[in-house]
């Protein structure tokens, strides 16, 4: 079922004197994996953070699964329950064990009891390949392990959409693969994903559409097969030349 689950309409945002986003239009369909890439400071993370209202927009409209994110007082509880986010720096809760990181929001917001939340947590840990780490603390984990726990934590809330803000950018090279593998599994299971990243290999393997953002403007977007092999805009071509060695 092809239905728009995220609609971004003419969104602009500036930070003091810097125009972070200019007139961005973007649609994401249910079950789609959208890969957003571009040079640093291009507005990719900002756009992602506007979708779950970690940032507010100056102009334009964002609708997520029927919820008007850009309203003055949107239904934040519903919004954030539907949208899971994975951060570049993981942001695991250091004072809680891995399993408690995953059960906390479940108990507080989904109102699940301890038993149920615990079961869901352990199942998710199996899915991301870390069943033995349930009672470890975040500072005992490697970067790749932390990020996989972060993904499990977000998934525990059964979101409809998963946002990834440069999930592998802070990882050592050998740990990137394990995280991308988990993300790949998610994509194959049909999760709607918006991924901001530099991992072009992942884009090619897992994404349905690619979006190139530079200087706050949407330069080009299109189906992955087309855009990856034959970018239309010169700017896009130049970027590919730079990053693909």
């Amino acid at each position: 079922m092809s239905e728009k689950i995220i609609e971004v309409r003419n969104v602009s945002k500036s930070f003091k004197h810097v125009q972070a986003l200019s007139n961005i239009d973007l649609d994401v369909n249910r079950g789609e994996v959208v890969f957003i890439f571009g040079p640093s400071g291009g507005g990719k993370s900002t756009l992602l953070r506007c979708i779950n209202r970690l940032e507010t927009v100056d102009e334009g409209e964002i609708v997520v699964d029927g919820i008007r994110v850009t309203d003055a007082k949107p239904d934040l509880d519903s919004l954030r329950a539907e949208v899971g986010m994975v951060f570049q720096l993981f942001n695991l809760f250091p004072h809680l064990t891995v399993v408690n990181n995953i059960t906390l929001a479940q108990e507080l917001i989904r109102k699940r009891d301890r038993q149920e939340a615990y079961e869901i947590a352990t199942n998710l840990l199996k899915r991301v390949g870390l069943p033995e780490k349930a009672d470890a603390f975040p500072d005992q984990l490697s970067g790749g392990q932390k990020q996989r726990v972060a993904i499990a934590r977000a998934l525990a809330m059964n979101p409809k959409i998963m946002l990834f803000d440069e999930p592998t950018s802070a990882l050592d090279a050998e740990m990137i693969r394990e995280v991308l593998d988990v993300m790949m599994l998610l994509a194959q299971e049909g999760m709607t994903m918006v991924v901001v990243s530099h991992e072009m290999g992942f884009a090619k393997a897992a994404s349905d559409r690619m979006v190139f953002l530079a200087d706050g403007k949407l330069v080009e977007e299109g189906p992955t097969d087309q855009l990856y092999a034959h970018p239309k805009e010169a700017r896009t071509k130049a970027f590919f030349d730079q990053i693909l060695y």
Binding site: L54, D77, L89, N91, L104, I109
Partner: peptide, 23 residues
């Protein structure tokens, strides 16, 4: 990032304070 992660999971400001930040 701690507050952002907590809020992204759906916690209210006070829930985030009580369970994540203050501890």
């Amino acid at each position: 990032g701690q507050m952002e992660a907590a809020r992204s999971l759906g916690m209210s400001y006070f829930q985030a304070m009580r369970h994540v930040i203050l501890p």
